[in-house]
Amino acid sequence: MLEKKLEKGLIHIYTGNGKGKTTAAIGQGIRTAGGGFKVLMVQFLKGGDTGEVHSIGKLAPNFEFIRFAAMNKFYFRLTEEEKAEVKKSVLQGLEMIRRCLQDKTYNLIIMDEIMAVLYNHVIEVEVVKSLLLNKPEDIEMILTGRKAPKELIDLADYVTEMTMIKHPFEKGIGARKGIES
């Protein structure tokens, strides 16, 4: 049970095809943790070593980061067996989030790339919708990823769409360590 409580927990969605959704979620998480609140970031479908993962614990010791269904290739390239493993891991992550909501373990829970989970039909939108509808009033939630479904947008209090106007990959510049990874 939490010692410190938020006045009112709202729902944020960071979506769109532009860069910065995860970074914005982490920034809000660091702000929340800096205010003395407990933060959990559950990241789905992302693998690899990124600077943001290393920074979280250094900047905010009350900011926990956990990955489920970590992958280093696109979902559509997975075998059926690999997709089944991804689904199993995603469901474990969602069950952990459900327990954390029920037990009020964190003030802010970030579900990073949950929209990719939904877009790839790993789970149904109703599963995530149920988490949001049943969250305690004093817990904040952030959901990230491209192509947020209308059902979740309708439930959210904040919706920010990141729009790509220009990106270095258009010039053949790949992801750079410390900037995009």
Score class of each variant (00 low, 15 high):
Leu78Gln: 05
Phe63Leu: 10
Ile109Met: 08
Leu94Val: 03
Leu6Tyr: 09
Gly20His: 07
Thr79Lys: 01
Tyr106Ile: 08
Thr105Glu: 09
Lys5Leu: 15
Thr144Ala: 12
Tyr75Phe: 11
Lys171Asp: 11
Leu101Ile: 02
Asn120Val: 00
Asn107Phe: 11
Arg176Gln: 12
Gly9His: 04
Phe76Ala: 00
Phe74Trp: 08
Glu80Ala: 14
Gly57Glu: 14
Phe65Asn: 06
Val90Gly: 08
Thr160Glu: 09
Leu2Asn: 13
Glu140Asp: 11
Ala175Thr: 06
Val128Thr: 14
Gly29Val: 11
Lys83Trp: 01
Ile165Ala: 12
Glu85Asp: 15
Arg176Ser: 04
Ala33Met: 09
Lys150Trp: 02
Ile173Met: 07
Gln43Ile: 04
Tyr75Arg: 00
Val39Gln: 07
Gly145Glu: 03
Leu108Val: 12
Met141Trp: 03
Leu131Arg: 10
Gly16Asn: 05
Phe169Pro: 01
Ile153His: 03
Gln92Asn: 11
Thr23Ile: 08
Tyr14Asn: 02
Val117Cys: 07
Arg146Trp: 01
Gly174Leu: 03
Arg98Gln: 11
Val128Leu: 15
Val90Cys: 07
Asn107Thr: 12
Ile56Val: 15
Asp112Trp: 09
Ile56Met: 09
Pro136Ala: 13
Ile123Cys: 12
Tyr158Leu: 10
Val53His: 14
Glu7Trp: 06
Lys104Glu: 13
His12Asn: 07
Val159Asn: 05
Gly34Asn: 04
Glu140Val: 07
Lys177Thr: 13
Asp154Ile: 13
Ala148Ser: 11
Phe63Thr: 04
Leu118Val: 13
Val39Ala: 12
Leu132Gly: 03
Glu140Lys: 10
Glu170Asn: 12
Leu108Glu: 09
Pro168Leu: 14
Met141Asp: 01
Glu52Gly: 04
Glu7Met: 13
Glu113Asn: 04
Thr79Ser: 15
Ile165Pro: 02
Leu118Cys: 08
Lys8Tyr: 14
Glu113Asp: 14
His121Pro: 00
Asp49Val: 12
Lys166Tyr: 13
Phe63Trp: 05
Met71Leu: 13
Tyr106Asn: 06
Arg77Cys: 02
Ile97Lys: 00
Asn107Arg: 12
